[in-house]
């Protein structure tokens, strides 16, 4: 067991957890934030993606100890004072979410992408989201959502991590 400190969605938390516990399980079980999903448990699908110190990581591959001292942003930290973040609004309006299971990871991947490229090209969007699998949309509505978010006066500093 290890004592770890995590800043989760802006809140400092101290936890005593097994060192090798997956960050995914820390988030879902210890912090009870179930917006982060498990799709494959092997880092392929990106359903468990979160921002850790601003980097997009698959939380199923991160041991708790490695997250010690980190600032982590999950889907619950994306909305602003209960209002949808522009990225969330664009996913909602443009059909970017169908079954919704990949959506939390996809939205965080989009935030990461737009932080890096505020006006991404089509290829940058394709590449930027390639670690997040979606079986419903064929990605076209998601690309459209991302493009709309990039146009929507996107402010890169709005993500809290």
């Amino acid at each position: 067991m290890s004592d770890i400190r995590i800043t989760i969605n802006g809140q400092a938390r101290s936890l005593n957890v097994p060192s090798m516990k997956r960050l995914l399980d820390v988030i879902r079980e210890d912090l009870q934030l179930t917006g982060t999903k498990e799709g494959c448990g092997e880092g392929e699908c990106g359903a468990c993606a979160v921002l850790m110190n601003g980097e997009l990581v698959n939380s199923c591959l991160v041991p708790a100890l490695q997250a010690n001292g980190a600032s982590v942003c999950t889907i619950e930290g994306v909305a602003i004072d209960g209002r949808l973040h522009p990225v969330q609004q664009c996913f909602l309006e443009n059909g970017g979410a169908q079954c919704g299971i990949c959506t939390p990871g996809m939205i965080l991947a989009t935030q990461h992408l737009l932080n890096k490229y505020p006006r991404p090209t089509y290829e940058q969007i394709q590449e930027g989201l390639a670690g997040n699998l979606c079986r419903c949309t064929g990605y076209m509505r998601i690309f459209e959502s991302v493009c709309k978010a990039a146009e929507a006066d996107y402010l890169p500093d709005r993500g809290k991590a």
Binding site: G35, I75, L92, G100, I107
Partner: peptide, 9 residues
């Protein structure tokens, strides 16, 4: 149910 989905709720 889109709002709940994009919020992770």
């Amino acid at each position: 149910e889109g709002r709940a989905k994009v919020l992770g709720e």
